[in-house]
Design a protein around this nucleic acid. Structure first.
Lengths: 241, 241
DNA sequence: TCATTTTTTGAACCATATTCATAATTCGCG
DNA sequence: CGCGAATTATGAATATGGTTCAAAAAATGA
């Protein structure tokens, strides 16, 4: 009796189709113009059918963000498995972020919107839960890196929990995404790639924490070499440049 | 002929009334439930009159954010005038941020929403312009601190522009605001005040930049003393605790 | 005082998210 | 197969709330 399974699979496939179509519409016409009717129409289904999958428009958006976060988490998993010092792996987390955002330019906008009071409040509890759960491994992996470093004696926690240590780097990454995406704010401060600058600040911050081995953040060539090495050894298939 | 002036003043007063009422409604019922009709009704005006002041709802929200940013900028001005080392003044910028957010708990949510593609795209160019202009002094002051430090030899730029140096700290602040406001994400990582942690990471980052005189970020007592001193010397009237 | 201009008004309009009664389809079983 | 029950899909109708604009009211000034 594979009927049940088949129906479930078809249902999941249709949901994926809705999500893919929504993504395409956002890419083409912007988040601003996304309409539920249009998604349904483009998939040749009635709006009511769309609502069998998503409790609301916010629900659908949150599902999109969750998809992205899972991909993001996969990248972090790779970093966790990469055989290198905790410091280099922590830096690789920053590089992962940089690559992820390049490959998913719409993600940050969407995520920013999703965590807005308005959208968060209007999504279904189940989706919220799913998003938080998808996020969990991200934190878990990074915290693990800090614990590894502390265990090896590379890093003194100095009274902070591993989570508290991470929050500094986490802020740098999220803050940079904000700045990059806030229209007109970053303006022309940075001729060079802002994410490369983020990587440099990452190193600066790790040095400030006294995380060994220290890295000369002012050595542009060394920084570029390390980034390139990480691209090659960890994200070979994802780095076009 | 003071008639013209009087009318202008009354128009400005009414606009302020609309803004204050909107703020109150947001505080009470949340951004989610803010409606233009309700704002007008609470001020005993017709919706059409409200639209004489604001081209759209987004326009009004952007005006609210701009008001907040001006207050924020005033705090930064105080820091700029504070007679202390550039390093301490740079740190005081972080403290200003902390105090500002405590006093304007709704601001960050609003600002986050305002810089969202959706809202930014739907506001009138004039309001966007005003918001960017209100933001300008913030950047200007912070960049000035970096230039001062570089001029005194406290800080080596190492090939970065003052703006690029600032972006690290700026990211930390904005990222922390994001984390604090993203429902459920920060969870229970930090028993202590997250903004105090931000201050600590600020010092860590400044140390990482090699910004003299270095500060022992692990010395909790010294950190609290410095924060208290800044509250006292710079923001005496704004610090209740 | 009254014609003209400016301002205010709020009902009508419009765009979309969401619902739900009805229709179509699928399922289980004799 | 056939048929009644259960499930699923449909899309017109509803609900909400931002926005407009023709008409009314108020202000101006000669």
């Amino acid at each position: 009796m594979g009927t049940k399974e088949r129906k479930q699979r078809e249902f999941a496939e249709r949901e994926q189709r809705f999500l893919d179509t929504a993504r395409e519409l956002i890419r083409r016409d912007g988040l601003l113009n996304l309409s539920m009717a249009r998604i349904a129409e483009d998939c040749d289904y009635a709006v009511g059918t769309l609502y069998q999958h998503f409790a609301s428009k916010e629900d659908l958006l949150m599902a999109l963000v969750t998809e992205d976060v899972r991909i993001h988490a996969d990248m972090f998993e790779r970093v966790a498995r990469w055989p290198a010092t905790p410091r280099d792996r922590m830096f690789a987390i920053g590089v992962a972020d940089m690559i992820f955002v390049r490959r998913h330019p719409e993600h940050f906008r969407l995520a920013q919107y999703a965590f807005t009071e308005i959208v968060w409040g209007a999504a279904s509890p189940a989706r919220r839960q799913a998003l938080l759960e998808a996020n969990e491994p991200l934190g878990e992996i990074v915290h693990g890196l800090v614990r590894d470093a502390a265990a090896r004696g590379d890093l003194a926690l100095n009274g902070l929990s591993p989570e508290e240590v991470c929050i500094g780097m986490w802020s740098i990454a999220i803050g940079m995404h904000n700045l990059v995406h806030a229209e007109g704010v970053l303006a022309d401060f940075t001729a060079r790639d802002p994410y490369r600058l983020m990587c440099r600040h990452f190193q600066t911050h790790l040095n400030g924490l006294g995380w060994n081995p220290l890295f000369d953040a002012t050595d542009d060539a060394a920084l570029d070499a390390l980034i390139k090495r990480i691209c090659h050894e960890v994200f070979d298939d994802l780095c076009s440049q």
